[in-house]
Design a protein around this nucleic acid. Structure first.
Lengths: 236, 236
DNA sequence: AGACGCAAAACTTGATCAAATTAAGGCAAG
DNA sequence: CTTGCCTTAATTTGATCAAGTTTTGCGTCT
């Protein structure tokens, strides 16, 4: 299966498996691996492979996979084979539309319900993000960028929309890593400064606008990269 | 558990369990029951109850529940108890925003990719829907109304958005039945005529507008009904 | 090239363990 | 003496595991 264990330094991979059902621990582990590109698009995922690797029974693994499939993070490949989905341009278009619509709304709502503590957390996260970009740390960029958006989604106090958008990120994850591996951390979208300023002065519409621009930039970059990879694949 | 088996006359409950894994059969059965209000909001759902009722093992039931929980059709009620979620005004607001945003887009896309066959199917469905309304058949109204929208979503050729919207309907389902049971089939939203006409003349923007109005009408009706029930519950 | 067979993986089941809720019983206070 | 609460036991339910069954894919043989 070739799935490397991630270093527990990642803020999202605390994996406090102390008092947690096995199926949830498996779910969270796989989720992070997909979100940050440790599983390549198209890579097959087998139940028995995971039971061997994670030393858990078959039932928890089955439940975790079923959950991830329901979220679109994995796909049933016809004959009861499970794999990491390959992002097609059509899918990216759909995901892009939803992100462009929902994330600005989340930013708008976050502006209204924002607490000083969460604003500080978002600002701190943005600094970490800039540091990662400056160092060319792709993994750091991916995790901090996700965290930046996740913090805003959390502040919006709209759990259903936040979970929906989270699923969209989950679908972009595997390809994002590939794209970033191609182009490095230069020319990355960053409307975060505008967004932070809008949050500080409590201007919901400005926050929505900044978020929309950030999402559009990111999505367009992925779409163009997808077209390139498809062209290169076709010319093979 | 008090879950009555639905008559197999429903077009969505063919349940051809012939060549289908047990976990999927369980999933589809439960999904339909939730979607059309056969399970009341707040009703507890137990694994063992389902194994007894459906005569299947424990693992398939667990997988089906995990999937439905991931889709928001069921919720984990704290102490590893599963139940049908109760729709709060905040949730309805979120769901409403997403429906108002996504369904017009689906209508827009459906207009462009529409085939004569699918247009006929949609028109036929609308006739069934009107018949159900005229007869005061709540169950028929619920299923045909869902089917009308589902056919449009299918025609849009946008599987991710369609699946996302489907999950929103799944959340409305249990409360929809309650609301309809209160007010009957009068004053139901029906911008379907405008929508059908727009589809026929291939006017994507008009279709999107008609869909938006239909969704807004339906969501507002549910929201106001929710407020009423909450007020009456508070005055108890 | 088509068919047969073997191996691997998924699906299902029943059993076992752990956790939580409920019921019962006893003690104390009014 | 009755009532209310707290503690404890029993039942119900959820979580996990390992074995058996079925299906699929692939390799080989004709």
């Amino acid at each position: 299966m070739n799935v490397e264990v991630i270093a527990p330094t990642n803020p999202f991979i605390g994996t406090d498996t102390g008092k947690m059902p096995a199926h949830q621990a498996v779910y969270e582990k796989l989720r992070v691996m997909i979100l940050f590109g440790d599983l390549a698009p198209g890579q097959p995922v087998t139940i028995q492979g995971l039971t061997d690797q994670l030393s858990v029974g078959m039932t928890p693994v089955r439940e975790a996979l079923r959950r991830l499939i329901a979220e679109g993070a994995l796909t049933h490949q016809g004959n009861r084979r499970v794999s990491v989905p390959v992002l097609t341009p059509d899918c990216a278009d759909e995901l892009g539309f939803m992100r462009k619509t929902l994330e600005p709304e989340l930013a708008r709502r976050a502006t209204l319900r924002l607490t000083p503590a969460s604003l500080d957390a978002i600002a701190a996260c943005d600094e970490d993000l800039n540091r990662a970009i400056a160092q060319g740390d792709i993994g750091g960029y991916l995790t901090q960028n996700y965290r930046f958006h996740a913090l805003i989604h959390e502040a919006a106090n709209a759990p259903i929309m936040a979970a929906t958008v989270d699923r969209l990120w989950l679908r972009f994850g595997p390809s994002l890593r590939v794209v970033c591996g191609r182009f490095g951390t230069r020319n990355l979208p960053d409307k975060h400064q505008d967004l932070l300023e809008a949050l500080r002065i409590r201007d919901a519409e400005a926050a929505a606008r900044a978020m929309a621009e950030d999402v559009i930039q990111g999505v367009d970059q992925i779409c163009s990269a997808l077209k390139d990879t498809e062209l290169s694949a076709r010319s093979d």
